[in-house]
């Protein structure tokens, strides 16, 4: 809210001040201070919106330059993504498939594991154990993603190669598995909060019918918390799609249109890193392709967030 637009702001008080000369100085200062603080708060609020709009605007603007040279049909149907080559191809699908496969593998790990951990911590673990485990789990999300990337390449990938012979060292499976481990605390922590917010009265209703703890947790408490748990899942998905370091290190940098997680493939994020590191002139098509890829990434996460928002509203429970 802008201070000048509000009729009840200190402006009216300032006008009546001259009669009270002895308190004039202090009283006059406070409304002014109020107004300054209000302005600062307003600017802080506006800045986040402005920055978001700025980023989106830049993405769209630079992408428009890209799409003046590359048709949308080619962008979505070409099976190759080689914008930096002498013979450039601009099909985004190989990058999208890489992103979707690594994200899919990560979610196959993170959603079940995170949910089980959340249910255990909320419904089964004694309070002492819960207070001990939760910070440890959250430590997982404090590990730098570079470390996860090397962990995926040096430890998980050789293991995967032993179990699935013929897998290359750079593969989406290892990257996805490690990314899944990284996301577990995001999913479990928020899900647990949602489960614990379910009132005891609901649990007692299930117990009173003869349900045991597992049935109560899975069939009564989990559905009641589904809105909050959906938020946790959405956060996990967004995190996986946007993750860069792990996939750039462990999944390879070769765009590859495949849904087979055993193969290596670049994701949208991995391409952006790779292209940003090379020196592309600012007006080159390679430079502009970064923004086109970024816009696609932005639209994917935006639509997932909008879907999550709809899901939360649709299933919100009031107690």
């Amino acid at each position: 809210m802008s201070s000048t637009a509000d009729p009840s702001t200190p402006a009216t008080q300032v006008a009546s001040l001259p009669q009270r000369t002895n308190v004039k100085r202090r009283a006059a200062k406070e409304p002014l201070l109020d107004r300054i603080i209000e302005l600062l708060l307003f600017l802080a609020g506006v800045s986040s919106v402005a920055i978001t709009l700025g980023i989106a605007g830049t993405l769209v603007f630079e992408s428009l330059a890209f799409f003046r040279e590359v048709s949308l049909v080619q962008f979505f149907t070409d099976h190759l993504w080689t914008p930096l080559f002498a013979d450039p191809h601009f099909g985004i699908m190989p990058l999208v498939s890489g992103t979707l496969v690594t994200t899919g593998v990560a979610l196959l790990i993170a959603l079940p594991l995170g949910t089980i951990i959340a249910i255990y911590l909320s419904e089964f673990a004694p309070a002492g154990l819960r207070e001990g485990i939760k910070p440890l789990l959250e430590l997982l999300s404090a590990v730098p993603t570079v470390v996860y990337g090397y962990f995926a390449l040096q430890l998980v990938s050789p293991l995967v190669q032993k179990i699935v012979p013929g897998t290359p060292a750079f593969n989406m499976l290892s990257a996805g598995i490690v990314m899944g481990i990284m996301i577990v605390p995001y999913v479990s922590s928020l899900s647990e909060d949602a489960l614990r917010a379910v009132p005891m009265l609901l649990r007692e209703g299930a117990y009173a019918l003869g349900a045991n703890r597992l049935i109560t947790a899975v069939k009564v408490v989990y559905p009641a918390a589904i809105s909050g748990i959906a938020s946790a899942y959405i956060l996990g998905i967004s995190r996986a799609i946007g993750e860069t370091m792990i996939v750039a290190i462990a999944a390879g940098t070769q765009p590859n249109l495949t849904l087979d997680p055993r193969e290596g493939a670049a994701t949208i994020t991995a391409f952006i890193v790779q292209a940003s590191l090379g020196d592309n002139p600012h007006d080159s098509i390679g430079y502009k392709s970064i923004f086109a890829a970024g816009l696609v990434l932005f639209l994917i996460t935006l639509s997932i967030n909008i879907f999550g928002h709809w899901l939360r509203k649709r299933f919100r429970e009031a107690y």
């Binding site: 007692e204 009173a208 559905p223």
Partner: peptide, 13 residues
């Protein structure tokens, strides 16, 4: 033995 509580507590089903 069935029970009905102080506040209605239907499940989210």
């Amino acid at each position: 033995i069935g029970m009905v509580f102080q506040k209605p507590n239907p499940f989210s089903k």
